Simulated scan of single mutants.
Amino acid sequence: MTIVAARRYANGKVHDLPIVLDGTPHSGPGGLFSGNAFDWIGLCEPSAAEMDLIRRQYGLHPLAVEDALNPRQLPKVDVYGKQLFVVARTAALGQGEEIVYGQTAFFLGKDFIISVRFGSNRAHTDLRRDLEADAERLSEGPDYVLHAVLDFIVDGYLPIADALEDVAQAIEESAIDAFPEPDTIRRIFRLRRQLRRYERVIGPMEEMVERLAQADLPTIDPSARIWFRDVLDHVRRAMARMRGLKETLAAIVETASLLEQHRQGEMTRQLAAWAAILAVPTAIAGIYGMNFDYIPELKWHYGYFFVWMLILGVCGGLFLRFRRIGWL
């Protein structure tokens, strides 16, 4: 059995009571553990047979179990009678700048919470220890545990935004000095593709948490909605940062293209100005290079100097004119 932790809590305290997961129908803590007692079971990548034991013991809906075993679900909240089924998506930076996704599903009843984690290396061990140290909060029940784990998952989005914002800033600064190299352009488009997928996978988290914060759902106490509103605020901030990052990457390409067009325009104007200046001596030399006997000033003693003065004068005038209008 891939159980990370299976404990029972009563009035915020941890009781060293083994929980046997053998498929026996769950009848609630009861007896010594009545009142605010509940079970918290954490599973990591369980098999279908193992999940079937959990399903039979806690009376989970088969469709919810099927979704929990499928690690490609989008974030959602489903109601099955008096139980709640929640799917959240985790995200972390893998090798390079690739975003790796995981999934954590929750089964929430009045006296239990079961988390099923796939594809995420961020275990809930430290979080569970922190919650167990705060008996007052833990005594509020499974809905508070759900809030704490969701908040833990959403906090994992922030390092992604921090890292990618640093990358975008470095690319943006280099693009100001020179048009990006082909490798940099490919890198930008890979990042934009990653962000589009992020928005598609993580985006529904906002709607899911909003429903937990506002809708009347079983096993969610109305007093706990304020905690989910805090998680909703964190989700919205994370999504806003990633959307802003996607716009920044698009602006980098656009701005770099405009700067490159400006540089090319300056170069074109300079070449056109020098071409106009050089056209003057070329034209005059071409005229006087013709094989005619009667060309004006051909026999004049000062004709050679006159032609040079004409070339220098016209070329100098053109140079000053182009310099004045900013072409040279």
Rank of each mutant, 00 (worst) to 15 (best):
F189R: 13
R190G: 05
R190W: 12
L191G: 03
Q194R: 13
Q194S: 13
Q194L: 04
R196K: 12
R197L: 15
R197N: 13
Y198S: 02
Y198D: 01
E199L: 12
E199V: 10
R200K: 15
V201F: 13
I202C: 01
P204Y: 06
M205H: 12
M205P: 00
E206L: 11
E207Y: 04
V209M: 07
V209W: 10
E210R: 14
E210V: 04
R211W: 04
L212Q: 07
A213F: 07
D221R: 13
P222S: 08
P222I: 01
S223V: 04
S223K: 14
A224L: 00
A224N: 08
A224E: 02
R225D: 00
F228Y: 14
L232E: 06
D233G: 03
D233K: 09
V235M: 08
V235Q: 07
R237Q: 08
A238L: 03
A238C: 03
M239K: 11
A240D: 15
M242I: 10
L245V: 09
K246Y: 05
K246F: 04
E247W: 11
E247K: 07
L249I: 09
A250K: 11
A250L: 13
I252C: 03
I252F: 06
V253G: 03
V253K: 14
S257T: 15
L258N: 15
L259G: 03
E260Y: 12
Q261F: 04
R263Y: 04
R263Q: 10
G265C: 05
M267Q: 13
T268S: 14
R269C: 02
Q270I: 14
L271D: 03
